[in-house]
Design a protein around this nucleic acid. Structure first.
Lengths: 253, 253
DNA sequence: TCAAAAGTGTTAAGTTTACACCCATGG
DNA sequence: CCATGGGTGTAAACTTAACACTTTTGA
């Protein structure tokens, strides 16, 4: 949490460096122990959590801004990012206006303005992430998809919207390279799909369908470990995966 | 086309009234005589055309801004609008910077800044539209999808991106209410789909598929007129249409 | 040797595709 | 009376869904 003095400095710096009126909010999805997770931030003072976000540098492409912001929160360089919507109601910024009303000059501070936010969702490997709080928070942590806390501003709306977009993406693009470890078993991949969709899938049909996409390579060695038949290990065939990403599955019309 | 003086005034007014750094670009699709059309603008001086667009008033929701802008260009009130992407490269505004370099003060004029543009596509009934040029143009006209002219800035990119989004929408949402007259025949609707997709479809299979969506009502009276069997007239069942719009077709997973 | 979890296969139901024939109308 | 374009039907190919049995492993 910033002191009043620091807040004033931040506000002045922001004015110098960032494009005014534009913000970026990111919904970072991770996957761990069969659960979809979302990366959230929180101050010690406030009860409510918020999404990682930030602003766009004056000469920076917006996609780069999203990458930069996420790098600061996760430590990751290569992140699968997808712009999915703009949130631009004029009263969505009211929160900041109120929050900093007594700390910053009423007019002409960075937070008093209106912000139109570009929503991105990101898919990341849970184990690669080292959650880093930002200047305004003490806590940066994963939260389970089915145990989401109350959120600030319109962030609940943004996160739900991101989940919808992600589910839609399942229908015409491969998912998983960014969420799974390099090698994984078929049941593990299935758990990812089930977590995203929030429902159970048939084991045998799932396998057939995924394999039909032609984006998986099966390695020779199975993974031993449980009191059961050792499952095969798979990895993504990056050539075909990339192709499927750009071309999409199934035609529709 | 504005004079230098008018341009300066516009620039000053814009600063007062609009949110800086944000613009809106609209790809307006219409359908006429079996052709998909896009509404474009042009000045007499310039060869290149551009998309209808504008800015967001300081207290205006962005969706309303898009509606307002399109109302000015088309005269229409009720327009099907879909936000589809943000275009935010820093050098996409270079064009305006150069164009007005000798007419406006170098620093601190409205057009010298960077603009991040929110892309919308719209579907409208061709016959309801009265194309209106804006302050910067003398010409506002429909252009055929398969005879598109050269365009300014990144507008070609934006338009192509809109077309992709529209084609994607065909796969999970109904299309047509906004593009067709109230009553239409099955072959007419088919032509719309063919125009959007840029390919021929099988008459019989098309009919089956569309009817299966359950969003059409067939009226009793057929339309006479050609030297052939009179085709039935259909209209959209708005209850089911709306439902399909929000719920989407086919499940995927 | 048994329970757990994974591999594999089959059949039935449902879609989609590719076609062919018949019907009303206006010239 | 015939050419044009529209309505309708169907068999074959393909997908998807539902379901059962066998295999391997660690305890």
């Amino acid at each position: 949490m910033l002191s009043k003095q620091q807040l004033i400095e931040y506000s002045e710096d922001a004015r110098k460096n960032y494009v005014n009126h534009i913000s970026i909010d990111c919904v970072v999805f991770g996957f761990h122990e069969g659960q979809m997770k979302v990366l959230l931030l929180k101050t010690n003072d406030e009860e409510k959590w918020y999404l990682p976000g930030g602003f766009v540098l004056k000469e920076e492409p917006i996609d780069n801004a999203a990458v930069r912001i996420l790098q600061e929160r996760t430590g990751l360089n290569k992140i699968f990012l997808q712009q999915f919507r703009v949130f631009g109601d004029p009263d969505r910024s009211k929160f900041h206006n109120d929050m900093y009303a007594d700390m910053l000059p009423k007019e002409d501070n960075w937070f008093s303005g209106r912000f139109i936010s570009i929503g991105y969702y990101a898919l990341v490997d849970f184990f690669d992430v080292t959650p880093q709080p930002d200047q305004f928070s003490e806590l940066c942590a994963w939260r389970d998809l089915d145990d989401m806390p109350e959120m600030q501003l319109d962030h609940e709306n943004i996160y739900k919207s991101a989940l919808d977009a992600l589910r839609l993406q399942l229908n015409y693009q491969p998912i998983g390279y960014n969420l799974m470890p390099r090698e994984f078993t078929m049941p593990e991949l299935q758990k990812l799909y089930e977590a995203i969709l929030g429902k159970k899938l048939d084991r045998r049909n799932f396998q057939r369908r995924i394999l039909a996409f032609g984006i998986l390579n099966r390695s020779e060695e199975p993974r031993k470990g449980g009191a059961h038949k050792a499952p095969y290990l798979y990895s993504f065939d990056m050539k075909n995966y990339q192709h499927a990403l750009t071309e999409g599955f199934k035609g529709g019309w």
